[in-house]
Design a protein around this nucleic acid. Structure first.
Lengths: 348, 348
DNA sequence: CCAGCGATTGTTAGCGCTAACAATCAGGGG
DNA sequence: CCCCTGATTGTTAGCGCTAACAATCGCTGG
């Protein structure tokens, strides 16, 4: 009744104070759990808050505390299973810590797009950001841009001095390659991901290292773009090599850099009349939910994306709080999942 | 030099004003593109902004304008291809409009989790939200909760009076079912998604309607949970029915409610020695990137997730601006993609 | 019985920005 | 030569909140 526009605007702290018969500061104290508030007062305030449906205005709060309690995430193509899962894990962890997560997605990883994204986040005063931009160029751009808040990368810290969380891609590749060699293959072919991706490079590296350790000269690397179609094309090439088979390196096993491409490879081989795994064993990477139902079920490397997301938030918060506890590169262990696609006792 | 802590805090509008020799209000005017500012003044201000690396504080702005220019998104399991793609389209559209997108992910769609998510968003003063929560229970909870800002749903407005964008799921199901009948099948079996999902219900409805229009009594509905594994189990059941084949309804065609489950069905059929599509034709829904490489390539219904995301932002903004242009339920058309899994001239 | 202490509550200044209003200036008509 | 007008710029109040400081209260010890 006191004001004509009362109903239009949400209640403020002053409204609650009036309702509870205390000062707005006491309300603030109750809200932030200050110890020196009498129990009865606290109850009155709580009741008033309840009655009015009051909610703290975070803009005002951010203004005075200079803390937005918002963190940004920059993600490239969150349509892929990996980034999407990481994002999910990360969101949850951030929310548990009372942070809001604002996401910006990039269509491509071009340096300029990244700059725009950082600007966008900076304009909203995020306290820090996680970049899920696993391309070499993006990470370099990130290092160059030096945003006004801490940034932690996911799968981006491999060679560079940026804090980040990543799976031990190389170890994953080693596990697969060792597994294939142990199964009796003379050598292992490799279908790599895009050259610009750090993960791709690390996987190729692991594969190459194992072969060299075994005194095997690595065959030529085939390359795709993570898509099933590109895998299909690589598979056609492999099939051609397998069927020609004159004098060249035998094609009996292939390590494909992700599961989606592996699906394409499997299809191409099948179309060429080549049986998996009897004639050519195939392994992937990621363990997408579909992998266990491929024809045949795919041997692959499982990544704990949720853990990666969680750890990256943890690391970022440490940077924000300034309690950077020693380690800056967190590495998560992969797990080899062996299925029919590399077991000779089963066919398609 | 004037202040000891100068370097610690980012420049404010007052700093820019001093640097440019004008009042802070003029700076504000330049920033918001007010017409009545002399060109030379504008240039000076712009130069000062550039020199100081000034950036408007959006918390202060939000406080005084009562507009956060932030929208929230609530998503259930953004690991699935559909939600993830929708999210991506939506992000981009929102960013183009100068909004920040804050996402909250829900593990399950339980009513309480949704309430928490809304609270979380409300606490940060979002101006509106998009809910990608395609479960009946979530949408009902949404309708019940009546949050203090407009909410638009994606795939959630089917039966209820909540504004939203959705694909014409029923039409998609009809297209598939008609296609299968046209290919010469006596009837079409159906593997549905979870009962609680609106999309699932709509797809089942479309399938049932077509059969009934053709005077066919719909066979018993099998049910999965969208996962490949659940599809596999349904497939085993179908295989059993197909092989038994005594007196019962013949099993020669199946419409599976999503592509992932279809993969499981295909695997189960293959394991049972049943050829696709020669003995049993299979169709899916979604057109995930892998679908064209399934054994055999899957006939399915393509959804334009990006368009759905974009339209939902459009609709939400209209609600925020208050310019609710008549239509509140936007429906996007699906597209039938015919591949080998329903063509009798090709096998696995 | 009063200074003095801790516990509790209130008062006062901004945080950085925009909106409303005020002031200033140049030029044209009477 | 002065008033009026519109263009341009400046001044003044908050937005809703927290931090720092001030005030008050009930007790305790001397």
């Amino acid at each position: 009744m006191t004001r004509p526009t009362e109903a239009l605007r949400p209640p403020t702290m002053a409204d609650v104070a009036r309702e509870a018969g205390v000062s707005h500061q006491t309300v603030s104290r109750v809200l932030s759990g200050h110890p020196n508030v009498r129990a009865t007062t606290r109850e009155q305030v709580t009741a008033a808050i309840e009655r009015l449906g009051y909610r703290r205005n975070s803009a005002a709060r951010a203004l005075v505390t200079r803390r937005s309690r918002t963190i940004g995430v920059i993600a490239v193509d969150p349509t892929l299973y990996g980034p999407a899962s990481t994002l999910a894990g990360l969101q949850e962890a951030a929310r548990d810590e009372g942070y809001l997560v604002s996401t910006v997605t990039l269509r491509s990883g071009g340096g300029h797009a990244l700059e725009d994204a950082l600007d966008h986040l900076a304009a909203w005063g995020v306290e820090g950001a996680v970049a899920i931009t696993p391309q070499r160029s993006s990470v370099q751009a990130l290092a160059r841009l030096a945003p006004p808040f801490p940034v932690v990368t996911v799968e981006g810290s491999h060679g560079l001095d940026i804090p980040g969380v990543s799976l031990d891609q190389e170890l994953g590749a080693r596990l697969v390659t060792e597994h294939l060699l142990a199964t009796g293959h003379e050598t292992v072919w490799h279908v790599a991901g895009p050259e610009d991706w750090l993960e791709s490079a690390a996987r190729t590296e692991g594969w190459r290292a194992v072969l060299e350790e075994h005194g095997i000269r690595p065959p030529r690397v085939l390359r795709g773009d993570w898509s099933p179609l590109s895998g299909y094309h690589a598979g056609q090439e492999l099939a051609g090599l397998a069927l020609a088979g004159r004098g060249a390196v035998p094609v009996t096993a292939a390590f494909v850099a992700n599961d989606q491409m592996a699906l394409g490879v499997l299809r191409a081989l099948r179309e060429a009349g080549i049986r998996t795994p009897r004639q050519v064993a195939v392994a992937g990477f990621d363990d997408i939910p579909e992998a266990g139902f491929f024809p045949p079920p795919l041997t692959t490397v499982r990544q704990d994306f949720t853990a990666i997301g969680r750890r990256s938030i943890q690391l970022l918060l440490e940077h924000i709080e300034g309690t950077v506890a020693g380690v800056e590169h967190i590495v998560v262990e992969p797990q080899l999942i062996v299925r029919a696609s590399t077991r000779s006792q089963d066919g398609a």
